[in-house]
Simulated scan of single mutants.
Amino acid sequence: MAPVPWFPFGHSVFGRYGEYAKVPAREVRHGIIVHHPRFLVVPKVGMRLNPWFLARAAARKLRALQQSGFDPDLIDAHYLYPDGVAAAMLGRAFDKPVVMTARGSDVTEIGRLPVFRGKILQAAESSSHIITVSNSLRQELAEMGVRTPITTLRNGVDADRFHILPDVSAKPHGIDDFHLVFAGWLIPRKRPDLVLKAAGQIPGARVTMVGEGPELPSLKVLAQSLGISSRVTFLGQQPPEAMPGLLGRADVLMLPSEREGWANVLLEAMACGTPVVSNAVAGALDLVTVPEAGRLVYSQTPEAYATAIKDVIYNHAGRRSVRAYAQQFGWREVSLAQQAIFEKAVEEFKKGQAVG
């Protein structure tokens, strides 16, 4: 079940809300039935009310599913707010165990705001287990006061989908001719400006910016002011099926985000044999642990990133070595560990019911 905000118009002029309106009430993905109940989003105050509206919409659908013969053993929510808070409401209403997964800004941004922190802590208290995608998120939740058992399960990578392309060279041609890529929302928190400023210090860098966002106009102006417009391509948002090719044809992926939980794009790039240069935050600290994976940058300046990029190019381990490291992070082990958490949560919940 994946609830979506209700919106009456499906035209592209309405942006992501227009896209929400096009989502079907029911669809099948990879043989799995997915329901999309609608929930109300109120402008201005919607953030505070979202968990209640989300839970209400999901409860209606869940009751209908129960009447049709399907009764779940457990409620699993991804992202602590509003999803986790809504799931905790559902757990109490339907007498089901709840497992929640923290993925990044739900802890590092929303969780730091007092008005939302209390709701997250209350939801965590009533859940059976919490999963985080990085150790830093687990530590921050503990510091917030979460006493529920917490396990770090890092996201995996689909190594069949993300792979070394047959027509790319094993290593970059050199510092005078290499391809740098950024993939993500063009928003201040992602610091895409640092990508252009770092590239401006390396004449041989060709840059591809993948993504959309409010910073796009200013980034184009910045590229012109740096004199690198001829070396920068703004591709806009790309479909998922295009990403293996975009990442696989790059020599380095740069991700200077101020905050990240676990950036899947880092691992996806590595699976393509492309090393990364990332800000030394959260999940990146757990992932970029060997030289072949790439470099972590602690000083958030164009000079520091340019130095790290040059280091990767000069000392590139070769695509096969980069991919071999990424293949350690497969989905099988993650999925089995998550299944074990689910089974334990259901078993302990039933025991609690029997005692009660």
Rank of each mutant, 00 (worst) to 15 (best):
I309E: 05
S321R: 11
G318M: 14
A317P: 10
N315E: 08
T301R: 09
L296K: 13
G330S: 06
T307I: 11
V297F: 10
A326L: 14
R332A: 15
A308W: 02
Q300F: 10
Q339P: 03
S299K: 15
R319D: 02
A317C: 05
E303P: 00
G318W: 06
S335E: 10
E333T: 08
G330P: 08
A306C: 06
A306K: 05
A326Y: 02
I309D: 07
A340H: 07
Q300N: 14
Q327W: 00
S321L: 00
L336I: 11
Y298I: 01
Q300T: 01
A324N: 12
L336W: 06
Y314D: 11
V334Y: 10
Q338Y: 14
T307W: 15
V312I: 13
V334C: 12
Q328T: 11
F342Q: 07
Q338V: 13
L296F: 15
Y325N: 09
P302G: 07
G294M: 04
G294W: 08
D311V: 00
D311S: 07
Q339I: 08
E333F: 05
R332P: 04
L296V: 11
S335H: 05
R332Y: 12
A337M: 03
Q338N: 09
H316E: 11
F342L: 07
A306V: 02
A308E: 09
L336Q: 15
I341N: 09
G330Q: 06
A324K: 14
S335K: 09
W331T: 04
Y305P: 00
Y314Q: 10
A324R: 15
Y298F: 14
